[in-house]
């Protein structure tokens, strides 16, 4: 990871994703508040057309990063491009960006519809779009009521409608599942998948790791303002998956352990079984080689790590 904003590097990274420029790309992006480094040399790349999860503990700098990307605060150092446009010209990319920042805010005494119309006028979007997005988040029947009478979940849905108003190419959502009931979360997930099918990019921050695991195909893990990981979600999950090998005879386990070590993987004996940290597709090869070596009575189980475990493991690695 380098933090120098080098234009040739930008092109190189763009070439990695065939055909399309990344939706978001940052190089050493930093934001300092006095002595505190909220975002500290963040380098990441989000390919277009993906649902990218943005995870990290509270105070990791997720919201500050989002505020930087939306041009609400100026970076202390570093550079970024959004939809191929420089961060320093938010007026060029923001018309194609929809955003839901922290808890969505509205004018409480105005109706849901008027709240959206204020922003539709400001962004110069047609009024018919307001009805469309209200329909999409299923708020049409309450659109005339003042927002102060809305429940938390309804406000959250109105916030999503607000983000969808420009029919954005890039949707930036900060904790969109906040205050939603289980049904609302499922509807949100379906909505995000539909948007991805339309070729849009979704950048989604959340601390509900289980929720992210189900929808994201790209992950950025943030800790103390730095990216611990930025890449395909699959890769991260594979990297820490395990095979668990059980056998009745200890000699057979020893054989398996030797084969796995020779293949370059870490083996941990665990209560009469072995845990091998390797990609899951190693299991068939391991099985074949164990049979060839004479270990015929073994059971190989795959254990896929959850995002939560991966995240904690990464954090632990960082602290060590």
């Amino acid at each position: 990871m380098t933090s120098s904003p080098d234009p040739s590097q930008t092109e190189l990274a763009a070439d990695n994703v065939p055909g399309r420029t990344p939706a978001i790309e940052t190089h050493g992006l930093s934001k300092h508040f006095g002595q505190r480094k909220a975002v500290d040399g963040l380098t990441m790349s989000i390919p277009a057309g993906t649902i990218a999860g943005f995870v990290g503990p509270n105070g990791a700098g997720k919201t500050t990063t989002i505020r930087l990307l939306l041009g609400l605060v100026r970076p202390s150092a570093g550079s970024a491009t959004i939809l191929g446009q420089l961060l320093t010209h938010p007026e060029r990319y923001l018309p194609c960006v929809g955003a839901l920042i922290e808890a969505p805010t509205f004018y409480p005494s105005l109706s849901g519809r008027t709240n959206l119309e204020v922003l539709a006028h400001l962004g110069d979007y047609p009024r018919s779009r307001v009805s469309q997005v209200l329909e999409l988040v299923e708020l049409s029947d309450r659109a005339k009521d003042p927002v102060r009478t809305y429940s938390q979940g309804m406000k959250q849905r109105l916030g999503v409608a607000m983000a969808l108003l420009p029919d954005p190419d890039l949707l930036i959502l900060d904790e969109p599942a906040n205050g939603l009931d289980p049904l609302g979360i499922i509807q949100m997930r379906d909505l995000l998948r539909r948007l991805r099918e339309q070729g849009k990019t979704v950048f989604l921050s959340s601390h509900l790791l289980g929720e992210l695991e189900q929808v994201t195909d790209w992950l950025v893990m943030l800790h103390q303002g730095k990216a611990l990981f930025s890449g395909p979600a699959r890769e991260l999950l594979d990297r820490r998956s395990e095979l668990v090998v059980e056998a009745e005879e200890a000699t057979q386990l020893d054989l398996v352990a030797r084969i796995a070590r020779e293949a370059g993987y870490t083996v941990t004996p665990d209560n009469g079984s072995l845990r091998i940290a390797c990609p899951l597709d190693f299991s068939s090869e391991l099985n074949r080689r164990a049979r060839e070596a004479g270990a015929t009575h073994i059971v190989i189980r795959t254990k896929e790590a959850s995002l939560e475990e991966r995240f904690l493991a990464l954090l632990k690695g960082e602290h060590e």
Partner: peptide
Amino acid sequence: SQGTLRNLLVREPRRLRL
């Protein structure tokens, strides 16, 4: 204080015009 300013700034990032 309500935080509605940031909604406006996302839709019109040019401060002076807003």
